[in-house]
Design a protein around this nucleic acid. Structure first.
Lengths: 351, 351
DNA sequence: CTGAAAGCGCTAACAT
DNA sequence: ATGTTAGCGCTTTCAG
């Protein structure tokens, strides 16, 4: 447990601390021979630099911090993977904190990162909160992810309106006559999706109906909503159901099944947020691939931009476009069903 | 971007730095009135303590570091969630690093954490590497996760042998006569699973066969193996297939489907590592729930134990027991199939 | 190319 | 209960 300091390394290598430090941080400023000696000493002693001291002494840090609301939603994982890949590519490390779906913890970790002098911070604030970006100017570059804010902060978000639009257009393509949207748009992302759906609906001649504005958006809620819709007479029943989240859609499919209705034979169902973790049911779900990976990447890029041109530009608000994933739950003809049965070999792509 | 220091806070509050520091770290040692003044000053100035300085000055850190090989395997996420929950419960923060499936990066992040003076480090080393725990004594408590090591280090792992045993027993329960194990046991965890399978097979009167020791364990490999098995005559074909990973099993189901064989009607298939991300196929997969969450929890507990009784005890090797999850892919009778169709409302539990 | 010395911001003794 | 001060380990001037 005894700590080895750079002075130990210096002594072992027969040089001064200054030189040892240079060997570590500016190898080109040190004679090759000296460098070798220092490295040998480091290896022999098992020296690990004290990051706190190093940073306190003023070297700028090469670490980004990422605060995620939870680790059990695929979207957040995609963000993490994108941010990690991009950070590494640019020579930065990434440290991730999971806030356990807690507003206070989100803030806590953000402040921790700020205090830890990371080079920049990425935050995906919680979805169901009215997030108030700190009015205080943050001491390091900060980018908010998956946030639609008019405030003067950097943010990168999925184009939720496009998600809604795409899925509604898909419904139209599939010949939907009566579309039901299930879920409660109780936060910005979901509201935007409904806007997109409404917009696309104007260009279609299908009836659109919003149902089940329950209090939560859980699998169970989807299940209940599905069962409820299944009780209607065939004429009153929708022929296409869109879940505002994949979780709801997956629940609805189970609810229909419990009531004796089969997807996609009796009606079609789609989600719209590309959450592979919702695919636990028997029917692979058509959904919108939300561009989490790209959001993570772009977030890091914004950080890097700010780093390279401090104070040089205005806060930026970026939107990233989603794309449709057609799967079995909306296969409306035998041919489509056949195609949908082909194995999907790139599951991991969606994560 | 201007940095506010504790001395600024002290001046603003009309006290000395020492008092300001106490207000922050030992509030009980400060008069309530002074405390309020200091807090007001902090809020007014937007002060964020410099973690590096704080730590360098000797306060022990309340942060654990967790190094994961990747973020796209459910097992790792379970570990992260378990570790996060347990850490918070004990008043610690958790920082997570993802090593992008790279040995060197794993090491890099470990060293970073050690250098950053976290209170303890948890590592899940990469699966397909012969991990050599540092011979150097780590400067902080360290626990290896999902590792079966005889070395003198702390580790917590899933009981992979039990995973194999359970799934083989399940095969027997389902009346399997010819069992095929697919996948290449090219690292410890998988080897242990085959041991468990073999052991359980001795008490059964089923034939057991290992096939397709391909070079990878991808969905695609599973698919190919499934198609290959499907080509056999009905008598030579296994009636129960166990994938050494869920990913392989999911691939195999798709392969059977492509060859015209339906699971569970024509044969049964199971995985054995409880990876919900592999459940993207049309048939919910019977598998073993691997106790990732508990492993994360227990890892943190070991860390805390070491922290509370430094040097007091021997390294510990803990095994955590798994459990069976029966789903549609091994439902062998109509009644079972009916039951398996009931919706699973607690997907999140597996993550 | 190398060595000596001045802090970085904070905490914890210690002194008051 | 509050103020004063000596470092924590490192990087980085600045001389040699």
């Amino acid at each position: 447990m005894a700590r080895i300091r750079i002075s130990d390394v210096a002594r072992e290598a027969g040089v001064s601390v200054g030189t040892a430090s240079n060997a570590l941080n500016h190898p080109n400023k040190v004679k090759q021979e000296t460098l070798d000696q220092v490295n040998a000493a480091i290896a022999r002693l098992g020296y690990v630099p004290n990051q706190a001291a190093r940073q306190l002494a003023g070297s700028e840090s090469r670490v980004f911090g990422l605060v995620l609301p939870r680790l059990d939603h695929a979207f957040s994982l995609q963000i993490a993977n994108g941010a990690q890949a991009e950070s590494r590519k640019r020579g930065y490390d990434l440290l991730i904190a999971s806030a356990g779906n807690d507003d206070i913890l989100t803030n806590h970790y953000m402040r921790y990162f700020l205090g830890a002098h990371v080079a920049g911070v990425l935050v995906q604030p919680m979805a169901d909160t009215s997030w108030d970006p700190e009015t205080q100017e943050a001491p390091v570059p900060t980018v908010y992810l998956d946030v639609h804010s008019r405030a003067a902060v950097n943010c990168v978000a999925a184009d939720n309106e496009a998600q809604g639009r795409l899925i509604m257009e898909h419904a139209t393509d599939r010949g939907a006559r009566r579309v039901a949207i299930i879920g409660k748009p109780d936060f910005m992302q979901l509201t935007l999706r409904t806007y997109g759906i409404r917009e696309a609906a104007r260009n279609a001649d299908a009836e659109v109906e919003f149902v089940g504005l329950g209090s939560w958006n859980s699998v169970k809620d989807g299940f209940e909503l599905g069962r409820e819709l299944a009780r209607r007479s065939p004429e009153a029943r929708p022929d296409f159901v869109i879940g505002l989240t994949d979780v709801l859609a997956a629940g609805a499919i189970a609810g229909f099944a419990a009531a004796g209705l089969s997807v996609p034979n009796d009606l079609l169902v789609a989600g719209c947020d590309g959450n592979p973790l919702a695919w636990g049911g028997t029917v692979p779900l058509t959904t919108i691939k939300s561009p989490g990976y790209e959001i993570g990447q772009k977030g890091v890029q914004l950080l890097l931009d700010e780093l390279s041109q401090p104070e040089a530009h205005e806060p930026r608000q970026e939107l990233v476009a989603p794309s449709l994933i057609e799967r079995m739950s909306t296969a409306s003809t035998p041919a489509e069903r056949k195609r949908a049965e082909e194995p999907e070999l790139d599951l991991a792509e969606y994560l």
